[in-house]
């Protein structure tokens, strides 16, 4: 009888070991290294100093990076939330055949399983100075000079984020919406609620969890991104993670580590704030 009680531990052990070796321990080391000193040509020097954090907090460029990341996060969150909600709503409440709804849902999710870098690069032949969009606009006489901000600008960065991350909003919202009992909607309609009242007072509150989970994903993805912002802004914009990336490039591991800890703290605070309102475990099993 005793050995049966050990079984869950044996089953969970591989997961626990991997998460310890490749998540918890590395994270602890990042924390340790963040108080080390960096010495030119020597590298890491064990120490206990807060100068890396001090250097981050007193650097005006860093505040700009944080501000720019915050700006992208807010814009992308708003766009993906609106898009994600209405697409999920369409699939759940407007497509009558379940099989077609699942098919269309998969059409939205397939790009998730393909390369983000390739999807990002594929905007280049469309948006460049001689790209398809500019060529089409010039040929049709709408403009006579190519629009330069289509590629390598904040616009391109937001476009790429929305392109890459909207499905992280669609999937959890679709998941909560699909579980809404249709008779609730019918009851609200019978009681005289208008379409908008039903959406706002019945459907939105019932997919709060989905919206919350989607927001956690989008916020984390945007905040931890460094390559979309590097490639698609043409080096004109940066993010917190590109600060980390830059520090790694000049082999300043302690400051990269300190920067990572600050970034992680902010991400965790935002995620915890959102998750306070929603019960993830219930959403998954319930």
């Amino acid at each position: 009888m005793k050995s049966r009680n050990l079984i869950p531990y044996l089953q969970a052990a591989p997961l626990a070991i991997v998460l310890f070796l490749f998540l918890a321990a590395p994270l602890a080391l990042v924390l340790v290294v963040s108080v080390f000193r960096n010495k030119l040509f020597v590298g890491l020097v064990p120490a206990f100093t807060f100068e890396n954090y001090f250097s981050i907090l007193t650097n005006a460029v860093n505040y700009q990076l944080y501000l720019s990341t915050l700006k992208f996060t807010v814009i992308v969150l708003a766009v993906t939330m609106v898009l994600g909600f209405w697409i999920a709503y369409f699939l759940v409440f407007h497509v009558r055949s379940l099989l077609i709804a699942i098919g269309l849902f998969l059409v939205c999710t397939v790009p998730f399983w393909t390369s983000n870098i390739i999807r990002m690069i594929s905007w280049k032949p469309l948006l460049g100075r001689e790209g398809l969009v500019n060529t089409a606009l010039i040929n049709s006489g709408v403009i006579d000079q190519p629009i330069l901000w289509l590629l390598f600008s904040d616009f391109t960065v937001v476009l790429s984020y929305v392109h890459l991350f909207t499905l992280f909003m669609i999937v959890p919202i679709f998941n909560s919406m699909a579980r809404i009992d249709k008779s609730l909607v019918e009851a609200a309609v019978d009681a005289g609620a208008s379409r908008w009242k039903v959406i706002w007072n019945v459907i939105v509150p019932l997919c709060k969890t989905g919206i919350g989970l989607g927001s956690v994903f989008v916020v984390t993805l945007v905040m931890s991104d460094f390559f979309v912002v590097a490639v698609m802004s043409g080096g004109l914009s940066g993010s917190v993670s590109s600060g980390v990336f830059f520090d790694l490039g000049i082999l300043n591991y302690p400051r990269a580590a300190a920067n990572s800890i600050v970034l992680l703290a902010i991400v965790v605070l935002i995620a915890a704030g959102i998750l306070r309102v929603v019960d993830v475990r219930k959403e998954l099993t319930g």
Partner: peptide, 21 residues
Amino acid sequence: YTALASLIMPGLVLSIGILVA
């Protein structure tokens, strides 16, 4: 919750941690 935390861990941060480890 550790497994969920792994989901929101910035990849670059994890990369640094594993390299240092």
